[in-house]
Design a binder for these strands. Structure first.
Length: 611
RNA sequence: CGGGCCGUAGCUCAGCCUGGCUAGAGCACUUGGUUUGGGACCAAGACGUCGCAGGUUCAAAUCCUGUCGGCCCGACCA
């Protein structure tokens, strides 16, 4: 028993906080599904339903069943422990928010696509919060006055609402989901950097404790705005993001943000000495067509001309801009917001394009001498890959014609140079020079360094040592808790079901007596082990159902409890029970040692996870 | 919002093209029996406004129109 006594002090991560947090299968609610529901596409979504973790109410809205809720609570607890450890303070903000603060920050417009709006009896509008920068900043604006009160980092775990155009993949992209969001307030940029790093480190620990392999990548800041950010990605073929990474170096970035040393084949730079020359290209409307016979202009020697309509911040009117890329490059819209100075923009319609350029898509070009007078002041944004290019071919800005011998420096009035292209596989890493790879991933966390955008808009200011009023420097940090749960399932499963990491498993031990008659030796032993483990704080589930062994084993594998203790007549005749880690090999244990062996296994599982 | 597909029992689906008898199967559920170490078997039973509305017809799950909902692809998107 000394062994058991020593093992009694297992950490809370494994044994749970409630000494009798255990359950009989027949008393709880675990409606497993033998068949795969038709509308679940990816394996984690299927298992979420089959393993009785959640049920769908309607598209993008799910009910958590007892098993799913237990796993969710485990993830939440890990998140809270690590946030607390990092010095963040838990608060709880309203989900229902007044639109006024969103108008103040400007996001009433820029985030309008995802905002759920509701009206009260007086027909006043309210918002269901998709995030809480405005609320927390309002709080700080009212409460924090001095540098002596800083830094502060507030967090909460709360339901968020987002008007997703197309909810899909179960909890991955839902209309309503649980997020942990944290907001840091600092006196200076350098101090904010410290807060940012604390959160980055906390996130690394959180996902590690959840049993997830994550990859932190440089990320675009999107609608939230801000200076720079990292996303925590779970590599998975079913992910909705694409991550560019280098196998030999530290570089990793979201495709929206990724840079490289440029196209593998450089643009022609040698000036042919020719002036731009118009030539007839009847019916040629694509880069591809111009690269074919009889023209044979490689895509890499063409200039692609796009027209976008931009709405500057605070303005109601849109204006057109031209965007130039190499023919074989793709525009990366996420990179466009910075150079444009606005994130409200869209591709121009053919009618709008004709109005400004006098030609239709397929024949567009920005060669200065071929621009109509109304386009004289048209802003021209050119991708860096085109810098210095010569001998290029592009549209003549006249339907049915192209121009060759174009020298960018000489012939095009570029107003802004910027990195606008999408990186492609195999291009050279800017850090290591090695070929870049691309793979899909699920975004589970995002840390942003925000700067003073919200503190200035909502007046969250403090007085510094010299009595000068300054805006707080902010950071914000999100973890999709429900999405993280599904990502764990997506990463931890096999053909038989879920394989929960111990730290987030709904229960850590499953006892499976094959004969459940109350007076049978097997059931009596099962009851003893169950009670013994429960009083030691192990979260244990007893499968007391009168079902055939096959049913019990299939269900056990499906719900994926990390350790199974099977008690059947055959081994019991030898005075033994069977220990089977989910996905591992079965081992025999003397019945009287069963509890000690289980505690030992849990202890080892915890030790092997700690780093 | 564009394109495609689908709504029949709790779940997975057949029947529809080519209208016609009491609308079917498997799984799940209830009862009884036989079974009992990897999703058993036998028997009996319960479960349906065939998404909804309108139309055509002697007759509609089936054909037509509209509508609502779902799924997939795209667009969009912390």
């Amino acid at each position: 028993m000394t062994c058991a006594r020593r093992l009694f002090s297992l950490s809370r991560a494994v044994v749970g906080h409630c000494t009798l947090d255990s359950m009989r299968w027949s008393q709880t609610f675990i409606p497993t599904l033998k068949e795969t529901p038709a509308d679940a596409e990816i394996v984690s979504h299927q298992l979420l339903l089959r393993a009785a973790l959640v049920r769908k109410l309607t598209g993008g809205l799910y009910t958590f069943l007892p098993l799913g809720l237990r796993a969710l609570r485990k993830v939440e607890r890990i998140v809270r422990e690590e946030m607390d450890r990092a010095g963040a303070l838990e608060v709880f903000m309203p989900a229902l928010q007044p639109p006024e603060i969103w108008q103040q920050s400007g996001r009433y417009v820029t985030a309008r696509e995802v905002l759920y709006k509701v009206r009260d009896r007086a027909d006043k509008e309210w918002l269901l919060g998709p995030t809480h920068e405005e609320v927390i900043t309002s709080l700080v604006a009212g409460e924090i006055n001095s540098y002596r009160q800083l830094p502060k980092n507030f967090y909460q775990v709360q339901t968020k609402f987002r008007d997703e155009i197309r909810p899909r993949f179960g909890l991955m992209r839902a209309k309503e989901f649980i997020m942990k969001d944290a907001y840091s307030f600092d006196v200076t940029d350098q101090a904010a950097q410290v807060s940012y790093q604390k959160m980055y480190d906390a996130y690394t620990r959180i996902f590690q404790r959840c049993g997830l392999r994550t990859l932190p990548v440089e990320a675009d800041t999107g609608v939230i705005g801000g200076k720079f950010s990292h996303e925590f990605m779970v590599p998975a073929e079913t992910g909705e993001n694409e991550v560019v990474y280098c196998e030999t170096g530290p570089y990793a970035a979201n495709l929206e943000k990724a840079v490289s040393q440029g196209p593998l084949t450089p643009c022609p730079l040698a000036d042919t000495g020719h002036e731009p020359e118009r030539f007839a290209t009847p019916g040629v409307l694509t880069i591809e067509a111009l690269s074919q016979a009889p023209y044979h202009v490689p895509a890499s020697a063409q200039i692609k001309t796009l027209v976008y309509m931009v709405k500057p911040f605070g303005s109601e009117d849109s204006h057109p801009v031209a965007i130039l890329l190499r023919g074989d490059d793709q525009l990366n819209e996420a990179k466009l917001a910075g150079p444009l100075g606005s994130n409200v923009f869209r591709p121009a319609t053919p009618e709008e394009i004709f109005l400004v350029l006098g030609a239709h898509p397929g024949s567009l070009g920005a060669v200065a001498s071929r621009l109509p007078t109304q386009a004289a002041a048209l802003p021209v944004f050119a991708d860096e890959a085109l810098r210095g290019a010569a001998g290029m071919t592009t549209g003549a800005n006249e339907d049915g014609y192209h121009v060759r011998h174009v020298n960018l420096t000489r012939d095009v009035r570029v107003t802004h140079w910027a990195d606008l292209r999408t990186v492609r596989v195999g291009e050279r890493c800017v850090v290591s020079g090695q070929p870049l790879k691309i793979r899909r991933a699920i975004e589970v966390g995002h840390v942003f360094k925000l700067g003073t955008k919200y503190s200035e808009a909502l007046n969250a200011r403090y007085l510094d040592e010299t009595g000068v009023s300054r805006p707080c420097v902010m950071g914000c940090y999100g973890i999709g808790v429900t999405r993280t749960l599904q990502a764990i399932v997506e990463q931890s499963n096999d053909k038989d079901g879920v394989r929960w990491p111990v730290a987030v498993a709904p229960y850590t031990v499953l006892i499976t007596p094959l004969n459940v008659a109350p007076e049978s030796p097997g059931m009596q032993l099962a009851e003893r082990i169950y009670a013994d483990l429960a009083t030691r704080g192990v979260e244990v589930l007893l499968d007391d159902r009168d079902e055939r062994p096959g049913v019990k084993f299939k269900d056990a594998d499906l719900i994926g409890i990390p350790l199974r203790v099977s008690i059947g007549e055959k081994s019991l005749a030898r005075g033994e029970v069977e220990l089977k880690p989910r996905g591992g090999a079965m081992t025999a244990a003397k019945a009287e040692d069963a509890v000690a062996r289980v505690l030992e296994w849990l202890h080892e599982a915890e030790a092997s996870r700690a780093t």
